[in-house]
Every structure is written in C-alpha cells, then in structure tokens.
C-alpha cells in the first residue's frame, strides 16, 4: 500500500546533542505505528518534526508524496496532520464544541457540514454531552479526550497521538483502543505510548527509539520480545514497567 507518510533520514540536533538521529520509516492508511522508547529517546521531538513545530537539520518528510519538510505547522495541519499533545492544549475560553469546530473549519476537510462533523468527532471521543462547557473547566481526563478530538478535527490523513492513554483508567484505556482501532481504518495513526498493552492492542508495527535513533521496527510481539528492547528498558520487562 502507498504510504501516507514517508520519513527519510530525519535528523534534529540541539548543539552537539543529536536528538533525532537519521530516522526513516513509513506509515500507511489503515495501520497504526506504535513508538516506544525510554524517556529522552526523542519520541516527542520526532512528532515535533512531523507536525512542523520544529525544523529538522536534515532529512525529508513526505505526506502523500508531497515534500512537507519546510511547510509551517498550520499548513501541515491543513494537509491533514492532526496531533494530540502529551500535555493537552485546549482553547480554555472556548466551549468544547468550538474547540473542535476551530479545527474543522481551518483544517483540510472543509467541504462537509462543519458543525455536524464537529459533533461526530465529539461523539466518537465521548464528549458530545459536554459540548457547551468551557474547555478551561474540564477535568484532566476530559481534556485528554478533547485533545484527541482536536487532533481528529484536522487530522484527515495522519494522526499523531502522544501518550493519550497516560492517566486513564483501565476501562478508559480499552475505550481509547477501540477509538484508535476505528480511526486507523481510514487514517495513518502514529502512537507514542508507555502503556504497553494498549499499544499492543492497536499497533500493527512498533518502532523503538533509543538515543534518537531507530533501534528496531517490526510486529508488536516480536519487538516486545526482542532482547535488545528488554535491555533498553534497563532489564525491566516492558509489561512490569507498564503495570506500575
């Protein structure tokens, strides 16, 4: 299948420190690529390079065969990249509905009825009944849902999910996995997550980053079982680390 996203030898340095080191991979519609790695492995920086927050020092980012390496963040969003940030970034003075509508009316897919689309998204993440509340007053879990909804509001091609399961209860994690599994039918999804069993349930491939470089990439079970991954996590088994 033709990849939605193709990343070629992407590199980001801060001073002498290479934070993302010659990383290449692809992601196609209909699949979820999981990214794991210890803290400081460069996972979030990789997302910053993909969505355009930060400019790379070398390498290319291709979205649907178009080179977007030098496009600013808002133009990438308009091409269909949606991102859920690790720390939610709600528009506190706007309602939940307006938070999502803002993305729908500024994003890639502006042809359909925007208000209906915003409601659909809110229903998908389970926030439809809170649509008239101010986003600034939402509790943390709802902020996380809203963050996912905002990513969906523009992300018609590619969704970048940065630890969206962190802090959720077991039941909510299952709901989230269902949402991601539904989303990946027509999106390419890239998901950074520490909660290993959630990632195992949704990811079709897993990529491991370590000191900014790609360590391994492959089917989830193989990657999790590989000795090198166990070692990166300093001898702690991934499942034990996740179950804490």
């Amino acid at each position: 299948m033709k990849p939605v996203l193709a990343v070629e030898r992407l590199e980001k340095r801060y001073g002498v420190k290479t934070v993302v080191d010659q990383v290449s991979f692809t992601a196609a519609a209909g699949e979820c690529l999981g990214i794991i790695g210890p803290n400081g492995a460069g996972k979030t920086t990789l997302f910053n390079l993909l969505d355009g927050c930060v400019a790379p020092n070398a390498g290319r980012v291709m979205l649907d065969d178009v080179d977007i390496t030098h496009l600013p963040q808002y133009r990438r969003a308009r091409r269909g990249i949606g991102r859920a940030f690790q720390i939610p970034r709600p528009f506190a003075g706007l309602t939940v509905f307006e938070n999502v509508l803002a993305g729908v009316v500024h994003g890639a897919d502006r042809s359909t009825a925007p208000q209906r689309r915003a409601i659909e998204i809110l229903e998908a993440v389970g926030l439809a009944h809170k649509r008239d509340l101010l986003a600034g007053g939402l509790p943390l879990l709802d902020r996380k849902r809203l963050e996912l909804a905002k990513a969906m509001s523009v992300g018609t091609r590619l969704l970048l999910l940065d630890e969206v399961a962190g802090g959720l209860t077991e039941h909510e994690v299952h709901q989230l996995v269902d949402i991601v599994n539904a989303l990946k039918r027509d999106h390419a999804v890239i998901w950074i997550e520490h909660i290993a069993h959630a990632l195992m349930a949704a990811a079709d491939r897993i990529m491991v980053l370590h000191f900014g470089a790609k360590l391994v990439e492959g089917p989830p079970a193989d990657v999790m079982a590989s000795a090198i991954v166990q070692e990166v996590y300093l001898g702690i088994s991934v499942d034990v680390a996740a179950d804490r």
Binding site: C53, R89, P90, F91, A102, G107
Partner: peptide
C-alpha cells in the same frame, strides 16, 4: 487561548 495549539489545528 493557545498559540501553539491553534497552529496545530
């Protein structure tokens, strides 16, 4: 409300 969040949508 959030400059970076705005650019991301």
């Amino acid at each position: 409300d959030n400059e970076n969040g705005a650019a991301s949508v």
